[in-house]
C-alpha cells in the first residue's frame, strides 16, 4: 500500500540524512521525499511517499518518531488529504507540434513558462496520476527533459499538523 507520511522535524543540519539513513538502513521504500522549512523557520516539513504492508508502515512511523529531532509524524493517507507535485517539462516544440503541445498543456491546466523557437518549458501541478497522464498524453519523442518536485501533502479540513 502507498502511504503519504508527513514529518515535522527540527530544521537542523543533518536532519534529512537521519531520515534518509533510517529508510536505507532498515530497507524501507522511499518513492519520493520532499522537504522545506515551514512558516516557523525552526521547523522543516517532509512529505515521504512510501509503500509497504501495514506492519512496515507502522514500524516506519514508530522509527521516525524515535529520531530525536522529529517533532511529529502523521500518516496523511489514513484520512482525506490533498497531494500535489510540480513538474517542469521541456519539450521540442516545432511545426505543428507547437499548437498541439499548447492545447494539451491547456487541457491539463499547465502553463508554458519558457518559449524559444524550438522548445517550451511547461509547468504542471497536480497529483502524481495527473502528472503521469500528461506525460503519457504527449508524444514521448518530443520530451527533452523533466524534473519533478515529488509529492507535498496536506490533510483536508480540520486535520492540522503543527506544534
Amino acid at each position: 500500500m502507498r502511504h503519504v507520511i508527513s514529518v515535522l522535524i527540527e530544521n537542523e543540519a543533518g536532519a534529512l540524512s537521519r531520515v534518509s539513513g533510517l529508510f536505507s538502513a532498515r530497507g524501507y521504500n522511499i518513492e519520493s521525499l520532499t522537504v522545506a522549512p515551514t512558516e516557523d523557520g525552526s521547523l522543516s516539513r517532509m512529505t515521504i511517499i512510501s509503500t509497504g504492508s501495514d506492519d512496515i508502515i507502522e514500524q516506519i512511523t514508530k522509527q521516525l518518531n524515535k529520531l530525536i529531532e522529529v517533532v511529529k509524524v502523521v500518516d496523511l493517507s489514513e484520512a482525506a488529504h490533498i497531494e500535489r507535485e510540480l513538474m517542469l517539462i521541456k519539450v521540442r516544440a516545432t511545426g505543428k507540434d507547437r499548437e498541439e503541445l499548447k492545447r494539451v498543456a491547456d487541457i491539463f491546466r499547465g502553463r508554458i513558462i519558457d518559449v524559444t523557437d524550438s522548445t517550451y518549458v511547461i509547468e504542471l501541478t497536480g497529483n502524481t496520476a495527473k502528472i503521469e497522464s500528461f506525460v503519457g498524453a504527449i508524444d514521448s519523442s518530443l520530451i527533452l527533459e523533466t524534473v519533478r518536485t515529488g509529492v507535498a501533502g496536506i490533510g483536508r479540513g480540520d486535520r492540522i499538523l503543527r506544534l
Binding site: 543533518g14 540524512s17 537521519r18 539513513g21 538502513a25 530525536i68
Partner: peptide
Amino acid sequence: VGITRPCVKHNFL
C-alpha cells in the same frame, strides 16, 4: 557524525 549516525541514539557536532 555521519559515520556514527546509525549506531548512536543521537549525535551532535
